[in-house]
Amino acid sequence: MPMQTKLFASIVLFGSALGAAACSATQAADAGSTLDGSVADSGTPDSPATIDAAGHDATIGDAKIHDADLDGWHPTK
């Protein structure tokens, strides 16, 4: 198994299993279900997309996305 696949399994698969196990039986059932088809995606791989030079704002299809209200949060490592 490639290293990144192992990391995916260790983080995402283990984590989501942890979440499903941690919640109640009803919640676990919900957590295991997928979103229904009514969920509107805000973009598709074919949508035109742009990112401003500073990397702060994006336009994906008709949707404008900005992260200005995240300014000041710089955790990183």
Binding site: F8, S16, T34, A40, D41, G43, G55, A58, I60
Partner: peptide, 24 residues
């Protein structure tokens, strides 16, 4: 390999993220 597939694993639409990745 981690974040976008992670959301897909949980059944969440990721078209916008893929588009963002391509644009970014």
């Amino acid at each position: 390999e981690l974040i976008i597939p992670g959301f897909e694993h949980l059944g969440m639409p990721t078209g916008a993220l893929h588009t963002w990745m391509d644009a970014e």
